[in-house]
């Protein structure tokens, strides 16, 4: 469902993402792990069409993001790490805007907006301006916007930032449910417990390059620590790399 082929992003002489290749099958949750500044957000911004790769190709649902960007974007939902939304629109107006941009028919849009607002407990706030929302509410509204057009691919950058424990728990349950429904979730995080709890497959990125990829068991086999948790293995892998 998601394919990255030798994706590289350079800013002048600085290489932010270096020759990243990933193959992510349909359905399931893929966790993308890395320390701060490893290149997670840059990779995600390239996958959503916000940045253009310096070289390499990205395919979403079989569509090449560079040659067929509109088709690729139409099946993708994106939840950014910082929910910068239009402050002078109400929550519901913002969702109408998203539905219209994704060309959702009017009746379906009404139904889906009601569903997502209900699911993310924003019904009471739907007619308030976004500028009056708390950070967590904006994050939930951004999640609603990413889901309202029923995407096949969901790209999520640090989803738990700003959410209270209830919100975080609900979001994790929701991600599991979406994965069961066949949505492919690409989850970037440095919360290792979230990745350990949710991910079917994962990749660790360090200084722009993929250190390792596979299931949790694959990584255990790689590090030779069968009984260790992800946190221990992650620290060991990234510390070794940083020492180099």
């Amino acid at each position: 469902m998601i394919t990255l082929q030798n994706v590289t992003k350079r800013y002048g002489s600085f290489v932010a993402v270096n020759d990243v290749s990933l193959e992510i099958p349909s359905g399931g949750i893929f966790a993308f792990l890395g320390v701060n500044g490893a290149g997670k957000t840059t990779t995600i911004r390239m996958m959503t069409g916000i940045l253009r790769p310096s070289s390499g190709s990205i395919f979403l649902g079989g569509y090449n993001l560079l040659t067929e960007p509109l088709k690729a974007k139409a099946i993708t939902g994106y939840i950014p790490d910082r929910p910068n939304l239009y402050p002078k629109l109400t929550g519901r107006e913002f969702l109408y805007f998203i539905c219209d941009i994704y060309r959702i028919p009017a009746k379906q849009a009404e139904r889906r907006i009601d569903e997502v607002l209900e699911e993310y407990t924003l019904v009471e706030w739907q007619d308030e301006l976004v500028e009056s929302y708390s950070h967590g509410m904006k994050q939930r509204l951004a999640t609603c916007a990413a889901l309202v057009h029923d995407p096949k691919v969901l790209i999520v950058d640090e989803p738990m930032v700003g959410l209270d424990p209830h919100g975080a728990r609900n979001l994790k349950e929701a991600f599991k449910r979406y994965a069961r429904q066949g949505i492919t979730i690409f989850l970037s995080t440095h919360s290792l417990n979230v990745a350990e709890e949710l991910a079917d497959n994962l990749a660790i990125i360090q200084r722009g390059s993929i250190l390792t990829t596979g299931t949790l068991d694959d990584i255990r086999a790689l590090t030779g620590k069968q009984d260790e948790g992800l946190e221990h293995m992650f620290l060991e892998l990234t510390a070794t790399e940083q020492a180099h």
């Binding site: 959503t48 960007p69 509109l70 088709k71 950014p80 239009y86 998203i98 941009i101």
Partner: peptide, 14 residues
Amino acid sequence: EGQAFWILQSAPLS
């Protein structure tokens, strides 16, 4: 559009 420009950039619009 400010910091919210990502909404249009990631939408299926040229």
